[in-house]
Amino acid sequence: MEWRSAGLSWADQERPVLVWERGEVSPLVVGRRLGFRAVGRRQCVGARGNPCPVAAAVPARGTQARCADCARLDRAHSVAADTIADDPRTYRVYLAWFGAGLVKVGITREERGPARLLEQGAVAFAWLGRGPLMAARRAEELLRVALGVPDRISYARKRAVRAALPGVEERRHELARLHGFALALDGWPESLERVPSAVVDHGEAFGVERLAGAGGGFAVTELVDGGVVRGVLVAVAGPDLYLDDGGRLIVLDSRLLRGWRLEGAESAESAESAGGAGRTSVPVREVPVIQGGLF
C-alpha cells in the first residue's frame, strides 16, 4: 500500500495529525519516535479536493505542492485571494500573536473556530469581530493600518522567535492592550459585531515551553528521494514538527511533506548500532534565535 502525504491538520483543534492522500490520519504524540523516508518524486496534490490530472512533478522546496495549473484553480476559489465576494458565511476578524512585537491581523470562517490560528502557529490570539465577509475584509484593512501590523508573517520569522518567547502573562497583556485599542477605533463596518476581549493561548497545545533554551535547531529545507527524517517528537507548532534527533533539534515544516510518498525508516536502535548512520539525512539549515519580533 502506498502512503502519500497530504500534510498536517489541526482540524479537531485538540491534537495535530498527519493526513494521508486517501484520508487516513496518524496522530502526532509528543514523546514518540518518528522515522520516515521519502521515496520517488514529489507529486502535485491537486486542487479543491481533486487530484492533479497529470500527477505533475513539483519542486521539493515549495510549501504549496501544486503545479501551476492546480495552483491557479485553487486560488480562483480562495477567500485569501479576494476572488469570492458573495460568500454568505460568517467570518471572524482576529489578532494573532507569534512573539514579542510580532502580531498580525486576519480573518477566518467562523465555522472553523481556532483551527486557522493553530495552523498558522499563533501562540496566542483574540477575536475582534464577526460578520459578513466583505465587512470583515474592510475591518482587517482598517486594523492593519491603524495598529501598524501586517496581514502576513513569514514562517521563518515565527520559527526564529519561538525558542525565546516571553511568558503567558506578557503575551496576554500585549494582545489585550491591542484588542482594547482596536475596538475603540472609529470606522468599523456597521454590519460587523465587535467581540469582547478573551485571549486564547496555544503555548501548552504547541509545547513551546519544551523549546525554551533549546536554540533554534536545524530546519529541513527539502526532502529528497531516499532522504530520512528521524527523531523523538518534542513539540508541534503550527505546521512545524520539532524532533530531537540524537541531541540535535530538527524542525520539519510539514507542508514540505505534501505530495511525497513516505515509508517507515528503520528503528533508532538499529541506527545507533550502525554508528549513527541512520540520523536525519535530508538537507537542513540552522534556525537563528531572535529575541523579540524584529531582526
Rank of each mutant, 00 (worst) to 15 (best):
Q291Y: 11
H173A: 15
A11G: 06
R258W: 06
V45W: 02
L241K: 13
S273L: 11
F98A: 07
A277Q: 09
D12C: 09
I84W: 09
P189S: 15
V251M: 07
A11S: 14
A81P: 05
Y94D: 02
G31Q: 06
A274L: 09
E119P: 00
R172L: 10
A164G: 00
C67I: 13
A126G: 08
L185M: 08
T221M: 09
V123R: 03
S26M: 12
V93F: 01
S270L: 15
A219P: 01
A277D: 13
L243F: 00
A57H: 14
W3R: 15
G247S: 05
R116A: 12
V161D: 07
V149E: 04
E193C: 04
A146W: 01
S197P: 09
F295E: 15
R230P: 03
T63N: 00
T280G: 01
V19H: 04
R33V: 15
A57K: 12
R159S: 11
R171H: 07
G227Q: 01
V30Q: 04
G101K: 01
L165Q: 09
F36Q: 06
A237P: 01
R177M: 11
L294C: 15
V168F: 05
P283K: 08
S78H: 10
A139E: 01
W260N: 06
D253V: 00
E204R: 11
G275N: 10
G276C: 13
A184E: 14
V236K: 03
